[in-house]
């Protein structure tokens, strides 16, 4: 127990330090690019030098970088990420909404991919060398090799008539009940979630198969077979339990990258999530939104790694640091 607590505290500290570094980098990144916010402002064309100076003063951009950094941290601590140039709303509110739309969509796809991927990989490994195994491996490889946006377009083409092809809700639904609303959102979520799921499924299935082949060849699986345990029990309690070590790491790491990769998927399906927020922030040079979105993505990746560490710790009693 003590060992566990000690390790959790350590990992938490590391995660917090990483987030702090990310915040600082995020601050620096946007200061070291040539030109500052004011000179980049396409919105004030023909502004005089004096007007620009006034703006700089108003935004505090004429103060030293250290003072700005402290101010930035102070505002951040209060949840203030600035206001979006595009719609004048607080960035935190925009991002909160976008993340609230992205996370369920990504999670749904990921959970499906995890379940299907592990089941496929386990089946392939248990039936190693058979036609079933070959068919599963080829399908996993194919899905793995396809680019996400291409899968998205293909699904749109094939299933666009069955499922809604874009957006998050049916705008023409008048005063839906909470139940109707949920069903509507899930219905719209199906295709983008499916794309997320498909892009993850291939790598989960392939890795599970490899990891399972390795653990199935271990001595303790031979022992388990000699003990007369059922195949299901051998797979679940012996082989898969050990194979989950590399699998859980991959899942957590891929989650971080998926949240970044949703830019393409959300653009294809007009899903109002963080990916599309980034896309429109870039096209409209919405600099506060962009900075906020980067911060959120970095934190998501760090949190995913942190969770992966905790899971690993829980799965593998041998870890000591």
């Amino acid at each position: 127990m003590n060992r566990g607590l000690d390790l959790v505290l350590r990992r938490t500290a590391v995660a917090l330090i990483t987030i702090f570094c990310a915040i600082s980098l995020n601050f620096l990144l946007f200061r070291v690019v040539p030109g500052d916010a004011v000179s980049n402002l396409a919105r004030v064309p023909n502004s005089t030098v004096a007007q620009q100076q006034a703006l700089r003063h108003e935004f505090g951009l004429d103060r030293s970088i250290g003072v700005q950094y402290v101010a930035y941290l102070r505002e951040l601590a209060h949840g203030n990420l600035g206001r979006s140039f595009a719609n004048g709303q607080p960035v935190s509110k925009n991002l909160g909404e976008a993340l609230g739309n992205t996370l369920p969509m990504v999670l749904l796809g990921t959970v499906v991919a995890i379940l299907a991927g592990i089941a496929t990989g386990v089946l392939g490994a248990v039936r190693r060398g058979t036609r079933t195994d070959r068919a599963l491996t080829v399908s996993s490889l194919t899905v793995y090799a396809l680019p996400a946006q291409w899968v998205g377009l293909l699904l749109l083409f094939l299933l666009g008539g069955v499922f809604p092809s874009g957006g998050r809700v049916d705008e023409f639904l008048i005063e839906p009940s909470p139940w109707q609303h949920t069903v509507d959102v899930l219905w719209h979520m199906t295709l983008p979630s499916l794309v997320v799921g498909l892009t993850l499924f291939g790598q989960y299935a392939l890795l599970t198969r490899t990891a399972m082949l390795e653990t199935l060849a271990e001595d303790y699986v031979l022992t388990a077979r000699a003990k007369g345990l059922s195949t299901l029990r051998i797979v679940r309690h012996h082989a898969l339990r050990n194979a989950m070590l590399p699998i859980s790491t991959l899942i957590a790491l891929s989650l971080g990258s998926v949240v970044g990769g949703v830019v393409l998927i959300e653009t294809v399906f007009s899903w109002p999530g963080i990916g599309r927020a980034i896309y429109s922030a870039v096209t409209s040079r919405d600099y506060p939104m962009l900075q906020g979105a980067f911060l959120v993505l970095t934190v998501v990746v760090v949190v995913c790694n942190y969770v992966s560490d905790l899971i690993y710790l829980r799965l593998d009693p041998r870890i000591t640091v």
């Binding site: 001595d219 000699a226 007369g228």
Partner: peptide, 30 residues
């Protein structure tokens, strides 16, 4: 006949036991 009549102790006890489960649970399951 497995384990109830014929059982076996393998060479190299390290890997004959599952590294992520307690000794007790591995005995108890049979």
């Amino acid at each position: 006949y497995r384990w109830g009549d014929l059982s076996i102790v393998f060479q190299g006890a390290l890997n004959a036991l599952n590294p992520v489960r307690t000794v007790g649970s591995q005995i108890a399951e049979v």
